[in-house]
Simulated assay, not measured.
Amino acid sequence: MAADSLGYLLGRGAPRAPDRDSLEAWGRALGAVLPRPVVITLEGDLGAGKTTLVRAICVGIGVAAIEAVTSPTFSIIQQYDAPRGPVIHADLYRLRSDAELEMLGWDELVEGAPVLLVEWPDRAVNTLPRDTIHVVLGHDPENADRRLLRIHAPTMR
C-alpha cells in the first residue's frame, strides 16, 4: 500500500503549482510513505522552497525536533533523528570540487543513510543512485505565492 501511495504522490498526486500550504501538505504526505533507503534531490533557485519542502518531509517522517530542520548551507550536512532511522540533510551549494565532496564521506552517506535529502545536487550528480527521486521547484512567474513543481522519479512499485 505504501508503494501505491508513494507512486501516486510522485505522479498524479503531486501539486503542479502549489502555494506554501499545499507544498507543505504534499511534503508531509510524501515523508510519511517514503521507503528506506531513499535519496531525494531538491533543485531550485534561492527562495524556491527547497528547505520548506525538506522540513515538511521531515514532519511526515516523524522528526521530533522539527525546529532543528534548517538549511545546512554553512554546516553542509545535518542529521535529524527519526523513529525509523536518521534523516541526513545535505546542502551542497558551497562545494566547488569532487575533492570537497569526497572529504565529506559522500559515498558513505549515499550508501548508508536511510533517508538522504540533497539540496543543490548538481554538485554530486554523478554520485547519486539510479533510483533517486528528483524534485525541481521554481518560482511561478504569474503568481509569487506559488511554486512550480516537477518530479522525476523511478517507477515506484
Rank of each mutant, 00 (worst) to 15 (best):
A3T: 14
D4R: 14
L6Q: 10
G7R: 08
G7D: 07
L9Q: 10
L10G: 01
G13T: 02
G13H: 01
A14D: 02
P15W: 10
P15V: 06
R16P: 00
P18E: 13
D19T: 07
R20V: 12
R20W: 03
R20Q: 14
R20M: 09
D21K: 12
D21C: 02
L23H: 09
L23D: 00
A25E: 07
W26P: 01
W26R: 00
G31M: 03
A32G: 14
L34E: 01
L34M: 07
P35I: 00
R36H: 08
I40L: 15
T41V: 12
L42Q: 00
E43W: 08
E43A: 13
G44E: 08
L46E: 09
L46C: 04
G47Y: 03
G47L: 11
A48G: 08
G49W: 00
K50R: 13
K50L: 07
V54D: 08
R55T: 11
R55Y: 06
C58H: 02
V59K: 06
V59D: 07
I61R: 12
I61V: 15
A64R: 14
A65K: 12
I66G: 06
I66W: 07
I66H: 08
E67D: 15
E67W: 05
V69T: 01
V69K: 00
S71E: 04
T73V: 03
F74M: 11
F74K: 05
S75Y: 07
I76G: 11
I77A: 08
Q78A: 15
Q79G: 01
Q79P: 04
D81A: 15
A82P: 06
A82R: 11
R84E: 13
R84G: 04
G85M: 06
I88R: 04
H89E: 11
A90I: 05
D91I: 00
L92Y: 13
L92Q: 07
L92F: 06
Y93I: 02
Y93D: 11
R96Y: 01
A99N: 09
L101Q: 13
E102H: 14
E102W: 06
M103L: 15
L104K: 08
L104C: 08
L104M: 15
E108R: 14
E108L: 15
L109F: 10
L109D: 00
V110M: 04
E111K: 15
G112E: 15
G112S: 14
A113T: 10
A113D: 01
P114E: 09
P114T: 09
V115N: 00
V115L: 11
L116M: 12
L117Y: 03
V118A: 07
W120G: 05
W120T: 02
W120L: 11
D122E: 15
R123D: 01
L128M: 13
L128V: 07
L128I: 10
L128H: 00
D131E: 14
T132E: 06
T132F: 09
T132N: 10
I133L: 09
I133F: 03
H134W: 13
H134N: 06
V136M: 13
L137G: 01
L137H: 10
G138W: 04
H139A: 08
N143C: 01
A144S: 13
A144P: 11
R150A: 13
I151G: 03
I151P: 04
I151E: 05
I151T: 04
T155E: 12
T155P: 02
M156R: 12
M156F: 08
R157F: 06
